[in-house]
Design a protein around this nucleic acid. Sequence first.
DNA 1: TACTTTCCTAGTGGTTTTATATGATTATAT
DNA 2: ATATAATCATATAAAACCACTAGGAAAGTA
Lengths: 144, 144
Amino acid sequence: MKVSTKGRYALRIMLDLAMHNSGELVPLKDIARRQGITLKYMEQIISPLSKAGFVQSLRGSSGGYRLARNPSDYTVGSILRVLEGPLAPTACLETEINECPRAESCPTISFWNGLNKVINDYVDSVTLEDLVNEETALQSDYVI
Amino acid sequence: MKVSTKGRYALRIMLDLAMHNSGELVPLKDIARRQGITLKYMEQIISPLSKAGFVQSLRGSSGGYRLARNPSDYTVGSILRVLEGPLAPTACLETEINECPRAESCPTISFWNGLNKVINDYVDSVTLEDLVNEETALQSDYVI
DNA sequence: TACTTTCCTAGTGGTTTTATATGATTATAT
DNA sequence: ATATAATCATATAAAACCACTAGGAAAGTA
């Protein structure tokens, strides 16, 4: 029942971009330095986010990444799903293909359905903007 | 973010015992047959449940297992945790040893804490008795 | 004793995770 | 044009984890 590092790092990358959301492009090298993750590993993580249209990119000198939308338009769940796939606690809930042949008579499936719902409802109730506000508060606490 | 087969099978074993909760000992062989899981694999799953005091056992002919308490006294969460360990979505929430050095300044930890809470609150809100009632209802539906 | 059932330990093939490394491609600045 | 700086694509690999399989010891019953 663990979220993988890819999912966690994706969230940190997106939050880093949200904290530097001036419209300027942010080179991945800078994010890597701030977050303490190697550039090469980050490339693997941001690539699916780029393909999913979550970030805009520009190559070349003074290139980099920036958010494609407002921080409030990203739920944490939507970010995690790009890297993790469905956040379902069992495979039988993921797709119809994976559906268990005994689903109709399964006495535990409604339990798993309920768990699936509370997980997804929660991760979709928090946006990147919420995390930005939290980080801003943390930083001002630090100054005090 | 998946619950392993051990956790899912543990739940099915406990539910099977709850459905046959007459006080009689139930041989694992019978559960294995009903659930379509090999005996040898089930032994590995019920062993931690036995050591945790969740089931009582007796060896030898006409031996077997039975629940140690009433079905209403087991939350699904308590059963899953025996096989899965803590149901925390990140390692840093599991133990103080795993705590991240940057926990104090981490802008995502409160998000993960919230996810941890909704997961554990939910799994502890459902008991084995609830699943027994569900299965009984399913079976009577089937008869109709 | 013969049989049944739990209990204990070890091994194994496969997949996933978590990276690291190398290099190619593309775009910008000068 | 050239150098620079970034994205993009693959390949590799150690380590951990998963999902079993297997053999036999111990303990209880008939």
